[in-house]
Computed example of a mutant assay.
Amino acid sequence: MNKIKQLVITFVVAFLVVIGIGGTAHAARTDMLDVSDYNNNGQALTTQQYINLRNNYGIKAVNVKISEGQTWNASTAKANISNASQAGLYTNGYHFARYNSVVTAQAEARHAVQQAQVDGLGIGSVIVTDAESSAQSSVSKATNDQANQAFAQVVQQAGYRCDIYTMGSWVNTKMTVSDGTGWIAYYPYHVTTDRYTGNHAWQFSSTMTFTGLSGRYDVSQLYDNYYTANTDKNAVISNSQTTHVAINNKHTTTHKQAVSGTFRDGPYIIHRQTGVFTAGQTLRVFAYPGVQSTGAKYYKGESVIYDGYVRNGNYIYVSYLIKGGYHHYVAVRHNGVALGTFK
């Protein structure tokens, strides 16, 4: 899934005034952080780093990637869980789902539970099914619902609680996410209003940067105490002491910037470039450039921070990272004509 104190809040408000949004813009809180092997140069965060996140940014809970599919295990999960717990943070785990049936969901849930136990995730913690892969996009809503329920049953039988993480455009379209449940990802360019307030949490940015940490991180705002063991989340650190991010630090990447080199995604060579694209129309999201639609969409006015581009046929696509460390793609030009605007 930028994302100290009064000085930062003052700076953000001042910046918004400069760019014309005004000083009354809403700002989401950095209540919860999620981490995986892709963060911090592949190293677990230390206890002191978690303490700094708690004290300087108001992080209250951490979701640690523990597993994926039926066999993959996170190498940093055990240390991240231990270090975050020692820092006084509530710890939970998430599993990147590859299932698309009841049988495969049950198998993945057993793997997730086993790995959570190995990694020291306490009974009663939340194990989230991170359901956003091409496997779920290829089946019906009813099939996804049955598979998610099967995953949750195995997790709950092992003494853990369960939740669903997915993208906003999939909520109640590709799978059911009932009110009072769910951790929803949706990244507006400007955080001007609370989103998904009827759910447990809203992941509002995947590009949060923290002093003393390498790279970018997913951050979320909590609406209840589900991810803090049903204990008042303000007992860790109060909301008033939590960093409020009005623009997700995206002003650091508002201009296109060429980055040397390329990277490979399957058979495709992606040219590195960073920037912000805002859709001028409804655009589909693909697992590869123009191939294998995920079912997600970017609607007119929604923005994506991209890290590369590639031409495929008459289209140019930009790439961006999703929570599991994989790339998704959206078309930005067709026959040379821009399908939105760039910054």
Score class of each variant (00 low, 15 high):
Asp34Pro: 01
Gly23Cys: 03
Ile9Ala: 12
Leu89Tyr: 08
Lys60Asn: 11
Ala84Met: 02
Glu68Tyr: 01
Asp34Cys: 04
Asn73Trp: 03
Ala25Asn: 13
Ala44Leu: 00
Val12Thr: 03
Val12Gly: 07
Val62Thr: 03
Ala14Trp: 14
Asn92Cys: 07
Lys65Arg: 15
Ile21Tyr: 11
Asn73Ala: 10
Ala27Pro: 10
Arg54Phe: 11
Leu7Val: 13
Asn92Phe: 04
Asn92Ile: 01
Phe11Met: 05
Val62Trp: 10
Ile21Asn: 11
Gly22Pro: 12
Glu68Val: 00
Asp34Phe: 11
Ser85Gly: 13
Gln86Trp: 00
Leu53Ser: 07
Tyr57Thr: 01
Ile21Phe: 09
Ala74Cys: 11
Phe15Lys: 04
Val8Ile: 11
Gln43Asp: 03
Ile66Leu: 14
Thr24Gln: 14
Gly88His: 02
Asn52Phe: 01
Ala44Lys: 03
Ser75Thr: 15
Thr10Glu: 15
Asn41Ser: 15
Tyr94Asp: 13
Gly93Leu: 07
Arg29Phe: 12
Thr91Ser: 03
Gly42Asp: 08
Phe15Thr: 02
Ser36Met: 07
Phe15Cys: 05
Asn52Trp: 10
Gln43Pro: 00
Ile59Leu: 13
Phe11Ile: 12
Val13Gln: 04
Ile19Thr: 14
Thr30Ser: 02
Gln6Met: 10
Leu33Phe: 06
Ala84Tyr: 00
Ser75Phe: 05
Gln48Lys: 04
Tyr50Arg: 10
His26Val: 11
Asp31Gln: 03
Ile59Gly: 05
Lys65Ser: 14
Asn55Gly: 00
Ser75Glu: 14
Gln86Phe: 01
Val64Gly: 05
Asn39Arg: 01
Arg29Thr: 09
Met32Tyr: 06
Asn39Phe: 12
Asp31Arg: 01
Ala14Thr: 12
Tyr38Gly: 13
Leu45His: 01
Asn80Trp: 07
Leu7Asp: 13
Asn73Arg: 05
Asn55Tyr: 02
Ala25Trp: 07
Tyr90Asp: 08
Tyr38Ser: 11
Val35Ala: 00
Gln48Thr: 13
Met32Arg: 12
Arg29Pro: 04
Gln86Thr: 00
Asn83Met: 01
Ile9Met: 09
Ile81His: 06
Val18Ser: 07
Thr30Trp: 09
Trp72Cys: 00
Tyr50Glu: 13
Asn92Val: 02
Ser82His: 11
Val18Asn: 05
Asn83Pro: 09
Val8Asn: 09
Gly22Trp: 06
Asn39Leu: 09
Leu16Trp: 06
Val62Asp: 08
Asn40Val: 07
Val12Cys: 06
Ser85Met: 04
Ala79Asp: 10
Ala61Phe: 11
Gly58Ser: 06
Val17Pro: 07
Leu7Tyr: 12
Val12Tyr: 14
